[in-house]
Design a protein around this nucleic acid. Sequence first.
RNA 1: GGGAGCAUAGCUCAGCUGGUUCAGAGCAGCUGCCUUACAAGCAGCGGGUCCGCGGUUCGAAUCCGUGUGCUCCCACCA
Length: 882
Amino acid sequence: MELSKNFMPAAAESRWTTIWKDRKYFNSVPDERPAFAVVIPPPNVTGVLHMGHTLNETVQDILVRKARMSGFNACWVPGSDHASIATEAKVVQMLEKEKGIKKADLTRPEFLRYAFEWKEKYGGIIYSQIERLGCSVDWNRVTFTMDDHYYKAVIDVFVDLHDKGLIYRGARMINWDPAAKTALSDEEVEYKEVQGKLYYIRYKLEKGGDIIIATQRPETIMGDTAICVNPNDDRYRALIGSHAYVPLIDRKIPVIADEYVDPAFGTGALKVTPAHDINDYNLGLKHGLDVIDTLNDDGTLSEAAIIHVGTDRFKARKLIVAELEEKGLLAKEETYQTRVGYSQRTGVVVEPKISTQWFLRMKDMAGPALEAVLSGNVRIHPGDKFLATYRYWMENVKDWCISRQLWWGQQIPAWYNKDGGYVVAADRETAVIRFREKGVELQAEDIRQDEDVLDTWFSSWLWPMEVFNGITDPGNKDIDYYYPTSVLVTGQDIIFFWVARMIMAGMEYKKEKPFSDVYFTGMVRDKQGRKMSKSLGNSPDLLELIDKYGADAVRFGIMISSPAGNDLLFDEASLEQGRFFNNKMWNALKLIGMWKEKQSTEKPVDDWAHEWFEARLLQARLEVEQLLSQFRLSEALKTIYSLIWDDFCSWYLEWIKPGFEEAMASESLQKAVGFYEELLQLLHPFMPFITEEIFSLLRQRGNDEVLCIRQFPALASQREKLQQLTVQQRLEEGQLLQAVISGLRDARNKAQLKPKEQVALFITPANRELYNNICLILQKQVNASAISFTTEAVAKSLTVVIGKDQFYLQAGRETAPVQQKEDLLKELEYLKGFLVSVEKKLGNERFVQNAKPEVVETEKRKQEDARAKIRLIEESLTELTT
RNA sequence: GGGAGCAUAGCUCAGCUGGUUCAGAGCAGCUGCCUUACAAGCAGCGGGUCCGCGGUUCGAAUCCGUGUGCUCCCACCA
C-alpha cells in the first residue's frame, strides 16, 4: 500500500461524493424504522453560502449522519427559497445592466420568464456548495418555494385563511420600501441608532406671533394637518383651538390638544403629519384630521407637497432647511441620537405610509404556537436565552402585512370586478362562481387578479409541511411518516420571521408542531468580533476555503470554535487545526500500514494496552452520546479529537508499537485496526470524507463497506460494559500510567537526561497491584533498563513523587539534584497548606454533622493521602541532603 | 423605556445538582528534540484577585442581592 505523504482532500471528496450519491445512501423513503427528518432552512435561490450557512449546514449534517448511523431513517430535505424582494431586485438590476431593459417596459409574464431563466442559471450554485461541504441531503427531494405544488399550497392556504376570516384587506399604516417600491412587514425593518438632527421650526400663528416646533423631518411639513400640545401645558393652553400656518406653503392648520404630547420634549409642541408617522396617524384618527400624503412611492415629493415636487426626500430636506433658514423660520438645529428604520433587503430608509394591503390576523394563531413551546412540546436550545423573547413576541404579536408590490412570488388570489368589489379564490373560474354567489353576474374576462404577490415568509412558513406535500396532499405517506420533523437548525435572527410562524402554521394545518427541537446557532463574526459582511470584505468564500483546507477541515474548524448558541468568532487558524488533524489521522494510517508489512504470529504481550483502550473508547463514546443529545456539538468534537490524538495516537499506538525492526503481532494489529475503525465511525458525522477514506484503506475494504451507514452499537450494552469492574480498573491503571510516564519524563528532562540514556527505576508504590499490568509499558516509555520495587530510599538517585508513589531514577552518571530539591520543597509547602485546610474542615463539628457522609469520607481520605505524601517527600529530602 | 444573556489564563471558551488536589481545555507562549507514522510533528513546562462588594452556607467560580462593564432583542416621544 503506497500512501501519499499527506491526506489529499480534493480527490477523496469527489470520490466519496460520487459513491454516496450513486448508491443513494442519503435517499429516504418511509419504512419500519423511526424517522429522523430535517428540513434545511432554504437559502435564497440566487445567493451563495456564507459562513453562517456553513455553520448551520454542518450542524444539520452532523445530527442527520449521527441519526442515520443510529438506527433512524434519516431524511434531510434540501431546497431553496424564491426570496421575493432580494431576487426580484437582482433580476431587475441584471436586466438593466446586461440587457438595458427596464422592468416597467416588460409585461408580467415576460419579467417572470427572465426571472426563471436567472433562477435556472444561478440557483444551482447553492446546491453545489451544499454538496461540496459533504451534506448528506436527499437530492430526490429538492424543493423550491415556487414549485408548482408549493405555489398551489401557498394559494390554498391564503384562500383558506381568508375564508376563515383571518386574512383581510385594508388601508393601514405600513412600512414602505421606496427602493423596492413595496410594503414590508414589521420584521423586515431594521432599526439603527443614528446621529440625526432636530430642527426647530417657527410656525406663524393666526393671532400673531409664532410657535416653535421640533422635528427630525422638515421635508414632511407640507403634510402637516395640525399642531398638537399637551392640554396641561400652561405655555400653550391659550393657543388650543386657534390656528397656525405651515411654513413655506402657508396652509392653515388647527392647534389641538392631546395628553400624548410630552411637554418636556423639544418645545412641547408637536407637528402632526398623519400620512408619514405612525403616532401622528393615530392622533389624526383620534382627532379626525386630514391625511395629506406628500410622498410618492419612490420616495420623491408628490404633487400634494406643492413645493419641490419630484425631488428625493433627503434632497428635499436639505433644500427646505436652507429655505427655512433663509426666511428666518429655523429657530435652531441640534444633533440628536435617534432610531431610523431601514429595509432589511434594500438598505434604504423605510417610510411609514398609509396603504391598502393584505393582512393576516395573528392573535388567534399565536395561542397554540405559544403553548407548544411553553409546554415543552417544542424544545428550544439554548432555551433560557430565547424562551422569554419568543413568549413576548407571541403575546404582543401584531397583524402581518403579507402583500408585496412585486411580481416574483405567489400572486395574491384575489379578483376584482370593475366596481372594485372583490372575491378570494384559487383561480379565475372559482372567482366567477364566488362573484355569482354574491349576486354579481359577470364573465371571466370581466375580472382581474390582484397584481401583488405574497411575502416570501408566507410561503416559507409552510416549509416543514409542504416539502412533504402536506398541504396539497394531506394524509400522504411521506407527511404522515416524516412529520413532525425532528430538529430545526437555524440562526437566531429569524426566530420571528420564520420559526415562530412555522409553529403557527403547523398548529393551524396539522394540529401538530412542525419540529420537536429547535437549535439556534449564533452569528458568525470575524476574529475581531465584527459581523461578516460584504462591505467589510471579511466574509470568506466557502469554496476557496474548501480548496485550501478541505471540506473536513472547514467543518472541523467551524465546529470546534462554535459553542452552542453563542456567536462564533471565525478564525482560519481553526481550519488549519482541522487540516493538521487530517494529517495526524493520515499518519496513523501510514503507521498501521507499515506494521502490516512485518507481522508475527506470536502471542502479543500487550493485552493490557488493548483492554485499556477499549475501556477508554467506551467511556469517551458514552460521553459523546451525552453531549450530542444535549446539542453540545462543539464539546463532542473536542472529546473525539482528544480521544484520537491523545489517547489513540500518543498513548495507545506508542504503547503497542513494536521495538525497532521487530515484527508486529498480528493479533495486536487486528485490535488496533478495529479500534481505529470505531474511532473513524465516531468521528464520521463531523468529518465524513477523511473518515470514509481511511476506513476504506485500513483493511482494503474497497468501497463495498462504508461508514456513512454503518450502525453504532446499542447504547444500553455499552453503559453496562462501562460499569464492569475490570473496565473501571483499566481506566484507573491507565490514568496512573500516564501520570507516571509524564512525571518521570519531566524529571528526566530537568536532570538533562537524554531520551537515549537508560535509567534503572525503583518504585515505592502505595498500591503495588496497580503496577502488575503496566510495568512493561512503563519501562519502555521512560527508557528504563529495569524496574524494581522497594520500600527503602535508593541512594544516589533522582527522587520523584507522583501521586501517592515514590520513584527513584538511577542514571549511569552523576546528575545535579538542585532543581529537584526545589520542586520537592515547593510540593511539600503546598501539601502542608492543603493538609491544614483539610484538617480544619474535619475539625469543624458542623461540617462533620451537616455534610454528606461520602463527602466527609473523601475529606478523610484526602487527609491520609496528604500525610502519606508529606512523609514520603520529607524522607526523600533527607535522602537528598545526606 | 422594557426584557434577556454574558463577565474564569494573553485569546476563545468548558466548568451540569454547591463538596474528588477545582481552578480546567484548545489556541498562543516558553524549553528541549529533524527519535525509524507524523517538524502540519514529538516530549515537557509556565500562566488565573474565577469583574467589584455584600449575603446564604460547615463549605461558593457555582446559589441570592447589589454595583460596574459588554452584547442582543423588543418598544410609536416628535
